[in-house]
Design a protein around this nucleic acid. Structure first.
Lengths: 269, 269
DNA sequence: GAGTGGTCTAGACCACAGA
DNA sequence: CTGTGGTCTAGACCACTCG
C-alpha cells in the first residue's frame, strides 16, 4: 500500500501529462528539434510512472508534435505548423500546364523558411487495386509506369547532408500506351511536373477528380514518414482525364497532422 | 473501396490481437452492432492479458471499426463503409441554388440503406476565432447567427426512437446584416439548405474556398460523435463569397474514419 | 555497456451500466 | 450487486542507439 497522494486531476493522469507536454512544446520549454527528458525522468519529475508517461508521449506524438526514435529518445517535431496544399479549378487556371499544386506548396514552404527536396524515381509495375480500377478495365491487369517522388522539407539553411523532414509521398501511375517510350519514362518529371509532360504528349488533362480519405499508415509509409501506427495519413487520389479517358492517377500520402488542404472554385454560370 | 490497412505485424502482441479483431469484424465473427466478448474473456481466449487486449481494442476503435461504451462493452460499428461527401465546382453547377453536397450525401446514404436524420438549431453568438477571421475584420468582435445541424445516419427500417449513428456536425455562421431578421433566423434551413435561403436574400454565393484538416476531437465533439481522443475528425471550413464579401462560413466536423471527400473540377480554358 | 523507448504482464481501483 | 471498460502502477524483458 503506497502512501495516499493527493490526486486533484479531474481528468485522467496521462491526459494531464500530455497537456503538460503540449504546453512545454508551445512555450519553448521543449524547443523544436530537441530531445525530451527520458521517460523515467519525466515520470519522476511529474510524480507518475513510466507507463503513464509513455502513453502521454504516444498521444502527443499522434498529434504530430513529437517524434520518437527507439533507443534514442523523443524529439520535438521540427515543423509544428501545417503546410497548406492548394488544389482545384482556380489554381489550375492560373498555372496553365504546370503543376499548380506543386508550385503553391513550394511557395508555402518558402514562406515557412523551408525548402522542398524531391527524390524522384520511375519503375514499371502492377498498380494497386484501387488505382487499377480507376485506370479502367483495360489496364486492370497490366503493368503501368509508376513515377514516384519522395518529398522532404528542410530548413533553408540546412546542410545538404540533412534531408530534412519527410512530408509527402507521391506516386503517379500512367498507362504504358500513354507514357511508354516517352520522356516520362526516363527522366524525373522536371519543373513542369508530370502534368506538363502529359500536355507535351497531347494528353493535357481536362477534368480532375480528387478523393480524400484519412487512414492509418502502412508499415512502409510509417517508416518513410517517420510516424507510427497511432498517427494518421491523408490519402489523396487524383484522377486526370483527357480525351474521354483516364491518363493519370496520382496517389499522394501525407502525414495528417502536418498538412491542411485547400480547394476553391466558382459557382459557375 | 479497398484501402490499405495496417498489416499483421509479427513484432508486437497488441498488433496481432488488433489484426484478429479486424479479421473477426471483416468475416462476420463479430457482426456489426454486436458486442465483443469482454476484454478478460478475449485475453483468456487469445493467451494474453487484459492490458494488451485493451490496447488492441483502442487501436481498432481508432480506426472506426469499434465503439466502446464504459460499463457496457465494446461494440462493432454499425457503419463500416465510408460515406462519400462530394463537393466542388461540377457539383454546384448541377444543383443550382440547392445544396448539392447535401443532396449527394443523402443519395450516398440511401444507397447504403441508411437515412440521414437532421436536428437543426439556431442561435446568436460570437463565432470561434478562426471563423471570425474569415468573416472579416468588421465582424470579428460581433455576434453572428450560428445555424447548427447535427446529423445522424440510421438504418432505413430503424424505429424513429433510434436516432442512429452520429455522423456529422455542421455549423454555418452568417453575419447578422446578412441573415438578421430573415427566414434564416427563425426556421431550419429547409430542403434548399442555407445556401438556397441566401440566394433568396440576394446573396447567392459565387465563389467558395474549402479547407480540410485532420485533428483530434474536442471533448464535446468526441461526446456527440461517440468517439474518443484516439480518433480523428476531419475539420472542414467552407467560406462562401457573394458580391465581393463573405456571406457565410460553414464548419463541418466529421469522424475521419467514416468519410471520404471527393472534389472534381475541369481544367478550364 | 549504459541509456533509451516499446512492450508485456499482473494486479489493483475506479466509474459506469444494467439486471 | 455484478460485470464492464478505463486507468494507474511496478516490474520485467527486449531492441535499438551511441559513446
Amino acid at each position: 500500500m503506497t502512501e495516499a497522494r493527493p490526486r486533484p486531476s479531474a481528468t485522467s493522469e496521462f491526459r494531464r501529462v500530455a497537456q503538460l507536454l503540449r504546453d512545454g512544446i508551445g512555450d519553448g520549454t521543449y524547443p523544436r528539434g530537441e530531445r525530451l527528458p527520458a521517460a523515467t525522468v519525466l515520470a519522476d519529475d511529474l510524480g507518475t510512472n513510466r507507463g503513464t508517461v509513455e502513453r502521454a508521449v504516444r498521444t502527443v506524438a499522434a498529434e504530430g508534435l513529437l517524434t520518437t526514435r527507439k533507443g534514442s529518445g523523443a524529439f520535438v517535431s521540427r515543423i509544428l505548423e501545417r503546410i497548406t496544399r492548394r488544389s482545384g479549378a482556380l489554381l489550375d487556371k492560373q498555372s496553365g500546364e504546370a503543376d499548380g499544386t506543386r508550385e503553391a506548396v513550394d511557395a508555402e514552404l518558402r514562406a515557412m523558411g523551408l525548402v522542398a527536396r524531391r527524390f524522384p524515381s520511375v519503375r514499371t509495375e502492377r498498380p494497386p487495386q484501387d488505382v487499377a480500377l480507376l485506370l479502367g478495365p483495360k489496364q486492370s491487369a497490366k503493368k503501368v509506369l509508376a513515377s514516384e517522388t519522395r518529398v522532404y522539407a528542410a530548413a533553408a539553411e540546412a546542410p545538404p547532408a540533412d534531408p530534412g523532414t519527410p512530408v509527402e509521398l507521391i506516386c503517379t501511375y500512367l498507362p504504358l500506351d500513354v507514357a511508354g517510350g516517352t520522356a516520362l519514362e526516363h527522366h524525373d518529371p522536371g519543373p513542369m511536373g508530370v502534368r506538363g509532360r502529359l500536355a507535351e504528349l497531347g494528353h493535357r488533362p481536362s477534368e480532375f477528380v480528387e478523393t480524400v480519405l484519412v487512414r492509418a499508415p502502412s508499415d512502409e509509409e510509417a517508416e518513410f514518414l517517420g510516424i507510427d501506427v497511432d498517427n494518421r495519413v491523408i490519402h489523396l487520389t487524383q484522377t486526370a482525364w483527357a480525351g474521354g479517358r483516364v491518363v493519370a492517377v496520382t496517389v499522394t500520402v501525407l502525414p495528417a497532422s502536418l498538412w491542411s488542404l485547400s480547394y476553391q472554385w466558382t459557382a459557375g454560370a
